[in-house]
C-alpha cells in the first residue's frame, strides 16, 4: 500500500459499564491479545492506544478503560468528554449490569454534544448457562439507541476484534461525513448537526419495553 495515500485518524474511545462486567478484560484482550483471570479492579481509568490500518486510514484508537466502581461514577464525565466512540459493556449473566447501560446512554446523550459511535457489548458470552440477558433483547435495545451490538467473550476471544473493527469503520465514516467530528484534529469543533443530533429524539425503552418491540429510530450506516 502506498504510504502517501494513507490518511490518519485519531479517535477517543471510552469503555463504560458496571463493576466487574469485564471492561478491562475486553480491552486487554483487544490491545494486548491476552486474558488473565486475575485482573484487578481499575482505579480511575487506564489509558491504552491501539493502531490499525483500515480503508486507507491509519487509525489510532485512544482507549479509555474506566473504573466501574461506584465511587468513580461521578468522575465519568472527565473520561467520556470529547469521546468519539463509547463501548457500553454489560455482563450477559447480570440483568442489573444490562439495565445500568440505560443510565450510561442517558448520561452520554445529555452530556456529549458531538457525534458519538455507540457499541453495546454483552460480555462473558462463554457463560451461556448463566445467561440472564437474551441476545434478542439486547439486539433490540441496541437498535433502539442506534448502537452496534456484539456479544463477546474476553476468555474465548470472540466478538471483540469484530466490535472494535466495526467501531473503527464507523469512526471513519463519521470522520468522512461529519466535518466537525472532533477526530484527528486539535481544532475545537463546533457543535455539529449530524445523524445523532437529528430532530427525532432518541428514546430509550424502559425495562419492560426492552422485551416489547423496540422502535427502530436509526439509520445506522453499517
Amino acid at each position: 500500500m502506498n504510504d502517501l495515500n494513507m490518511k490518519s485518524l485519531e479517535a477517543k474511545v471510552v469503555v463504560l459499564g458496571s463493576q466487574g462486567v469485564g471492561k478491562t478484560s475486553v480491552v486487554i484482550r483487544y490491545v494486548g491479545g491476552m486474558f488473565s483471570k486475575a485482573v484487578s479492579p481499575t482505579i480511575g481509568a487506564s489509558f491504552f492506544t491501539y493502531k490499525l490500518t483500515l480503508e486507507q486510514y491509519r487509525v489510532k484508537l485512544q482507549v479509555w478503560d474506566t473504573a466501574g466502581q461506584e465511587r468513580f461514577r461521578s468522575m465519568a464525565p472527565m473520561y467520556y468528554r470529547k469521546a468519539n466512540a463509547a463501548m457500553l459493556v454489560y455482563d450477559i449473566t447480570s440483568l442489573e449490569s444490562f439495565y445500568d447501560i440505560k443510565d450510561w446512554v442517558k448520561e452520554l446523550k445529555k452530556n456529549v454534544d458531538t457525534p458519538i459511535v455507540l457499541c453495546l457489548l454483552g460480555n462473558k458470552s462463554d457463560l451461556e448457562s448463566g445467561r440472564k440477558v437474551s441476545t434478542e433483547d439486547a439486539a433490540e435495545y441496541a437498535a433502539s439507541i442506534d448502537a452496534l451490538f456484539y456479544e463477546t467473550s474476553a476468555l474465548k476471544n470472540t466478538g471483540i476484534e469484530d466490535a472494535f473493527l466495526q467501531v473503527s469503520k464507523q469512526l471513519i465514516h463519521l470522520y468522512e461525513t461529519v466535518p466537525n467530528s472532533g477526530m484527528g484534529s486539535l481544532i475545537p469543533s463546533q457543535p455539529a448537526s449530524d445523524m445523532f443530533a437529528s430532530d427525532q429524539p432518541l428514546t430509550l425503552p424502559d425495562r419492560k419495553e426492552v422485551e416489547s418491540a423496540g422502535q427502530r429510530s436509526g439509520n445506522c450506516p453499517c
Binding site: I28, I43, G44, A45, S46, F72
Partner: peptide
C-alpha cells in the same frame, strides 16, 4: 499505599482522582 495496593496501574497509564 495506593500504589502498593493496586495491581491495575501495572497494566497501563492511569488517570485517577
Amino acid at each position: 499505599n495506593l500504589i502498593n495496593a493496586s495491581e491495575s496501574f501495572k497494566a497501563a497509564e492511569s488517570w485517577t482522582p
